[in-house]
Amino acid sequence: MTELLWYITAALAIGSGLGVVMLRMPLYSALSLVLHLFTMAAMFAFLDAHFLATTQIIVYAGAIMVLVIFVIMLLSLEGTEKRPSIFLIGIAGAAAFGLLYMMAPAIRRTFPMTGGSLQGDVGTIGKSLYTDYIFSFEIASLLIMVAIVGAVVLAKRIKKNAT
C-alpha cells in the first residue's frame, strides 16, 4: 500500500516537474511547481523527515511561491516567448535520458538497503541546529537580513528629481 502511494507520488512529482518546464503560461508553471513542492514534501514524509516536510510547505509552497505568483500577476506576464526548436528539445531530452540510463544500474547496485531508523522530528533537528551548527544558523539569519535589505533596495522605484 505504501509502495503504491510512493509510486503515485513519484509520478506526480515527475509530471508536475515536466509541467513547469513545458507549460506555456508562467502562471500555470508556478501552480505546477506548487504541486511539485507538495509531492516533495510527501517524499520527505516517506523518509520520516516530518519537520522538513512541514517546513517545505510553509517556506517553499507557502511563501516563496506566493512571492513568485505575486510578481507574475503584477507584471502581467503572458506566455509569449517563442517555443524552442524541436531539435534542441530532442538533443536535451536524449542527453538527459542517456545519462540516466547509464547511471541507473550503478545507483541501484550501491543502495540496496532500506536505511536506518532516523526520525527527523523537531527535537532532534533543533538540538543539532543549536549545538553543532549554531554558527551556520546565525550566519543564515544574517543572510536573510541582507536579502531583505537588498530586495527592498532593488525593487524600489527611484524618483528622478527635477533639481
Partner: peptide
C-alpha cells in the same frame, strides 16, 4: 541522512531552504 542515521543531512536541507528563500527574494 536516513541512510547513515545522521541528522546533519536534514540540517543541510534546512539551510538550503533558507538560502533558496533569500535567493528568491533578491
Amino acid at each position: 541522512s536516513k541512510l547513515h542515521n545522521d541528522i546533519s543531512g536534514q540540517v543541510g536541507v534546512f539551510f538550503v531552504m533558507v538560502v533558496a528563500a533569500a535567493e528568491a527574494a533578491v
